[in-house]
């Protein structure tokens, strides 16, 4: 049996960081466009739909990679409660990354809006269904932002306080293996 890798696969790291940039951009675009009525509103709406569609494609690829590629384990010395929190927050992130673009798509369908690229409607035109999805899209966006903050905070604690290999395992540049091996 091959030993578990010390770092994520380069493709997984590429996806992680490109999606991180896009998701944070999406959250800021989304929250600012709904309060805006200048011509920027028009531009931001179309940017929001385009990035949302791109993120849907990316998250599907990412879930497949997560399930097929080997990935580094959580540090063994992490207290059980923190292990649980790490697992749960990652599961929540994946769920939200998948749900947000699908809710956006379903919400436009239920609102009777034309869809970008003339995509088929996911759901029937139904005003009450639209209302539920529109609210869910907003509240889940706040939850996603909060989860991203927790995720970032945890990554920084691993890197700066615990000083283990967790952040390095997802680092976008080449991995320096030396310090990790020297530890053993």
């Amino acid at each position: 049996m091959k030993p578990a890798p010390v770092a994520f696969h380069p493709l997984a790291r590429l996806l992680h960081w490109s999606m991180a940039v896009l998701i944070i951009a999406m959250l800021f675009v989304g929250v600012s466009m709904i309060a805006d009525l200048s011509p920027r509103h028009t531009l931001l709406i179309s940017v929001h739909k385009a990035i949302g569609l791109a993120l849907l494609v990316l998250v599907v690829i990412r879930i497949i990679l997560r399930l097929t590629l080997p990935h580094p384990p959580v540090p063994t010395d992490l207290p059980p409660l923190q292990r649980l929190a790490a697992g749960a927050s990652h599961l929540l992130l994946y769920a939200l990354m998948l749900a947000m673009p699908l809710i956006g798509w379903g919400m436009l369908s239920a609102g009777g809006y034309p869809l970008p690229l003339q995509l088929p409607a996911l759901l029937p035109h139904d005003l009450q269904l639209y209302a539920v999805l529109r609210r869910a899209h907003g509240w889940l966006a706040y939850l996603l932002f909060a989860t991203v903050l927790v995720h970032l905070g945890a990554a920084l604690v691993h890197a700066l306080i615990r000083r283990d290999g967790v952040l390095r395992s997802m680092w976008p540049g080449p991995i320096r293996r030396q310090p990790l091996e020297a530890k053993e």
Partner: peptide, 24 residues
Amino acid sequence: ADPILAARSAAYSESFNRRSREAA
């Protein structure tokens, strides 16, 4: 680039969201 046109779009959307919420 008429700013009123963009504002109409944004305000119609707010009206639509609000009445759909009231319906639900």
